[in-house]
Nucleic acid binder design. Structure first.
Lengths: 225, 225
DNA sequence: CGCATTATTGACCCGAATCAAATGAGGTGG
DNA sequence: CCACCTCATTTGATTCGGGTCAATAATGCG
């Protein structure tokens, strides 16, 4: 089985929910593509031409603010969907950018085909709707957190999320991305990270971070409430 | 035509997209209900039993933080959907509360019936999905704004949004809600509002606010960028 | 007419952004 | 191999927006 050319039914959202009659059509219309760390899959403000199914690798979804500032909206991992935010708007521009945090592969289909899929496959539409609903909940929770929690709690939250996405207590991330994820500046994150290290909550050397006391990090979240 | 008992096809999302064969079923399963200003339609953390279609009146959707603090996620008006955030999660608890800002009416159907509707009516599912997508975009934009804009800009944004929802440059809202919408404290909003008034951008007397210079308010947003 | 909210304003404080500078780490070309 | 440049890391000093607290005035309201 050619792993790089064929969709793994277990990981690709589209194939997972494709009706049998459409599997060949899906195969004909999708485009598999490898990408490198740092590469932008799509850019905020560009016309939304299609939708991406992340096959492998981690990707950050972020929104720009001015020339220097950004906010990381979400981290995506294997099996996640990207570019779906273009749907529902009139203009069909990507409202966010997607940048690879590591090498990986995606599966792309253009909007026309994807919409056709949705039309003939209500179950797919239904699942996608659920996916949106879940994302919406996450977004709104994060919204509240950004307003009401201090940086320390937001950083704890960010670390736990990264750990969850990577499926490991140890992971690699640069400080700037960490700052953008927590919604704070580089310097502040640097200091807070140092604080956490001194308290023995985490271990940080270089870009590698290990969570030592997950429980205490979680307490920071609930304590802020 | 009994206005209070029957869904206006033009305003109710559910009826608007119902397939003809189901119109009678919809009629049988929906529950129309009047509500009073200040009444809570549903409460964050409660089991999500169903979905609400706002027939008349304005409703705030908000998320609690601690005993005293809240963040208004969104304002809903005639034709909007409420309680749809319960979908997609495992637990099926409302992740937000909904409180009436004025008297109104809603149309309610329980989850079981609504899900059945979605199953037999792909067009409805598709439209709902688009609705979610639009909400998601809004939420994420707001997220970024809350992080990167100062209070002055956030208040300008909030005022413009209220004006848009109410379809009028003049509207009524209490300061506390305004604060929760802009993600700031009562006092800060009070002062900033005073500032705007002195600059002649708005006129405020009591709970009534009139936008005088919409253009300048918008400039506050783009200027922050 | 007292009591309870809500409005209004001032003073203070603090978290975190900003600014600035020093240090270190890699990469490149001479 | 060294000089040089660029870029990330590290740390200190300073500033400031806005949250918190408190005190008074005003406005209901039973």
């Amino acid at each position: 089985m050619k792993k790089n050319r064929d969709c793994d039914l277990k990981t690709c959202f589209l194939c997972q929910h494709a009706i049998p009659e459409w599997l060949s059509a899906v195969a004909a219309n999708r485009r598999h593509q490898a990408f490198k760390k740092g590469e932008m899959l799509f850019r905020e403000g560009e016309p939304a031409t299609g939708i991406y199914f992340l096959y492998d690798g981690k990707v950050k979804v972020h929104k720009q603010w001015g020339p220097e500032k950004e906010l990381i909206i979400r981290l995506a991992k294997k099996g996640d969907i990207l570019g779906h935010r273009g749907f529902g708007s009139d203009q069909r521009l990507y409202p966010v950018s997607a940048t690879a945090l590591e090498d990986g592969t995606y599966c792309y289909v253009n909007n026309a085909f994807f919409e056709a899929s949705l039309k003939v496959n209500p179950a797919l539409t239904y699942r996608l709707m659920q996916f949106y609903a879940a994302e919406l909940q996450e977004a709104e929770k994060k919204m509240r957190n950004l307003v009401h929690m201090d940086v320390k709690s937001r950083l704890a939250d960010a670390l736990l999320e990264i750990s969850r996405v990577y499926g490991d207590k140890q992971f690699t991330i640069n400080r700037q991305d960490l700052a953008s994820l927590a919604g704070a500046t580089y310097e502040t994150i640097y200091r807070t990270l140092q604080d956490f290290t001194q308290q023995g909550l985490i271990e940080a050397e270089g870009k590698s971070i290990t969570i030592l006391q997950e429980k205490k990090l979680r307490q920071l979240l609930t304590a802020a409430l």
